[in-house]
Design a protein around this nucleic acid. Structure first.
Length: 569
RNA sequence: GCCCCUGUAGCUCAGUGGAUAGAGCGUUGCCCUCCGGAGGCAGAAGCACAGGUUCGAGUCCUGUCAGGGGCACCA
């Protein structure tokens, strides 16, 4: 399968160069040549407005430029016809022989169909989810989880060697609070005197009561004098088992769990601070340099903190790296973490964050810049907030108060495929309302099953063929009709969709492509029958092979979205 | 107040600076015995507002209006 816009681009490039050498066109700076799939019948399959865009620089009429280009176009096996239309568009039509052969290309490429070589020999990392293990995964994390995992799948299809990473903080105050909360629940189970616990530092969720019961069952009262850290370690492991299981239920698997604590153990956090200090980006003060008199008065007498002069990079306020009590803020280890990522030698590092972390991330990016590190491989996908609704009620919640909706519950209610599809099928930077009732209703009538049903129908035909002992051996693909060809042309857009999704960091493009492919398939399916009294055997053979290829296409796009590929509804 | 994101059909959303802006739901009318109709065909209906850049703007820039999120020595 070819990346057709790229193939056409090369043709145009050659044509322009040779026209220039022949003196038919003057020399000029050639911009990226635009090539796009045509949307309207009569305008070919792909077109380029390149003549329009360079006409001014060339000092000729667009149509004349187009003519000179077309005269010098080298022949290509996939092009059957070239026309100049409108103000100067160059329209290309695909050769029937090329399109028909796609059936065999698809079958040969199989589950990797549509892959491109963009990332061949390169390593990419996608960091996503990254929730601290203080409670079950909430629905608030689900969008980033789905977007991150789909991005990883697309990067693999683009040829990258991909690592999925989960970064978590097991060192901070939250984890101390978690340990103390479990200790409280443990002592409560044993009926022992309870410690005083600050409401703000108490995780109230019922799951800690369950953990405490399990602890009592395993250890009796032998832990009654243990401190928070014992309980924290237990809770952390238990929590991660749970989180992994939740993620697995939506077919998400991380390759690496990177914990913040390791950055302290290795000394990377303090090394990073030293490096920043050495480069002159850090100062000690009770209040930041640009603070108002009022703020300074409030800070008077406070022990000095260490500040990162982020205002030098465009921030509106400097940021604390080390608090006056000597403990670093979250930002410093996060900068150390990104340094670590870069040192691990990834060519591309994609970081999926919720909108609430977008601002915070800028400081980290400036920190990386301040270290003088190459940051051009780092890309952030900010996913905007999702409002989850059920029965007209907006769901919100806090892990600490123990009031929240979990991803487990959502999976239970709407199923993994519907979750993945609906959270994916939006541009990451649109705000989205996920109405559980609506999704359940729509999924039963629309997109999710619409796409899966295309796969089901192909599988049904293959089953029928097997039952009849009918094979596609020696199929003559020239017998395929316009309907099948239209599908195949759309199928051949997969490489460009994967390329666009990866280079623009917009994984939702695959969801829309999948729906478009199904929208071509279903009307065609009615007309293009295999086993029907009116269909001659040789035509049936060709169609059967075509449906084999169509099934491969639907399986491919469904898997790229992390969805299942049912053979029956 | 400052920063980020978003305003496209009644609703939910696509839309690479290119030709006549697309889907689904809803709505109006129609079609279907044969590989599972969770289908198919047709109709009505739209780029928040005002400037600007450009041969060409839903798309880029500025402003206005409206909505969402973020602005800790928390993570």
């Amino acid at each position: 399968m070819k990346h057709l816009p790229e193939a056409h681009r090369q043709l145009l490039q050659m044509a322009i160069s040779s026209a220039q050498q022949a003196g038919a066109l003057p020399m000029f700076d050639l911009p990226e040549i635009p090539v796009q799939p045509s949307t309207r019948p009569g305008q070919g399959d792909y077109n380029s407005p390149v003549a329009l865009s360079v006409a001014k620089a060339v000092g000729m009429k667009p149509r004349d430029v187009a003519e000179r280009i077309v005269e010098h176009l080298p022949p290509a096996e996939f092009v059957s016809q070239v026309e100049i239309a409108g103000p100067g568009f160059i329209n290309f039509s695909l050769a029937r022989s090329y399109v028909v052969r796609l059936v065999d290309d698809i079958l040969t490429e199989g589950e990797r169909v549509g892959s491109v070589t963009l990332g061949a020999g390169k390593r990419a990392q996608v960091e996503f989810v990254s929730a601290n293990p203080t409670g079950p995964l909430t629905i608030g994390r689900s969008r980033g989880a789905v977007v991150g995992d789909t991005m990883a799948r697309l990067l693999e299809a683009a040829g990258y060697d991909v690592q999925r990473e989960y970064y978590f903080n097991n060192a901070g105050n939250q984890m101390v609070a978690l340990g103390n909360s479990l200790r409280y629940r443990y002592l409560e189970q044993l009926g022992l005197p309870l410690p005083i616990i600050d409401d703000d530092n108490f995780y109230r969720g019922d799951y800690l009561i369950d953990f405490a019961k399990a602890l009592v069952a395993e250890h009796g009262d032998s832990l009654k004098d243990a401190d928070w850290s014992t309980f924290k370690t237990y809770a952390e492991h238990k929590m991660f088992d749970w989180i992994k299981q939740t993620l697995q239920s939506v077919d998400i698997h991380h390759d690496n769990f990177f914990n913040e604590d390791s950055l302290f153990q290795s000394g990377a956090v303090w090394d990073t601070l030293a490096e920043l200090e050495q480069r002159g980006h850090i100062y000690s003060a009770a209040e930041w340099e640009g603070a108002s008199d009022e703020e300074k008065a409030q800070a008077a007498g406070k022990a000095p903190a260490k500040w990162f002069r982020s205002t030098a990079f465009g921030d509106d306020k400097d940021r604390v790296m080390v608090k006056s009590d000597g403990v670093p803020t979250y930002t410093l280890p996060d900068i150390a973490y990104h340094r670590n990522k870069i040192e691990r030698g990834f060519d591309l590092m994609v970081n999926v964050l919720g909108a609430d972390h977008g601002q915070q991330y800028r400081v980290v990016a400036w920190g990386v810049e301040a270290l003088g590190l190459p940051a051009d491989g780092i890309h952030v996908i900010i996913v905007q907030m999702v409002r989850f609704m059920k029965d007209g009620q907006i769901r919100k919640g806090s892990t600490r108060r123990g009031v929240f909706d979990t991803l487990d519950e959502l999976v239970e209610e709407v199923g993994p495929d519907a979750i993945r599809y609906h959270l994916l099928a939006r541009s990451p930077n649109t705000h989205l309302t996920f109405d559980v009732n609506e999704v359940i209703r729509k999924s039963n009538e629309n997109a999710v099953f619409y796409i899966q049903n295309a796969h089901v129908r192909c599988a049904g035909i293959l089953r029928e063929a097997e039952a009849r002992g009918f094979s596609d051996d020696a199929a003559n693909l020239d017998l395929l009709g316009e309907d099948e060809l239209a599908f195949l042309r759309k199928a051949n857009e997969l490489p460009e969709v994967i390329t666009a999704a990866v280079t623009e960091y917009e994984p939702h493009k695959i969801a829309f492509y999948a729906k478009e492919l199904a929208a071509i398939f279903h009307p065609m399916y009615d007309r293009v029958r295999v086993f029907h009294s009116d269909v001659p055997e040789d035509v049936a053979r060709a169609r059967l092979r075509f449906y084999c290829a169509a099934k491969v296409m639907f399986a491919r796009v469904l898997r790229l979205m992390g969805m299942t590929t049912p053979d029956r509804m």
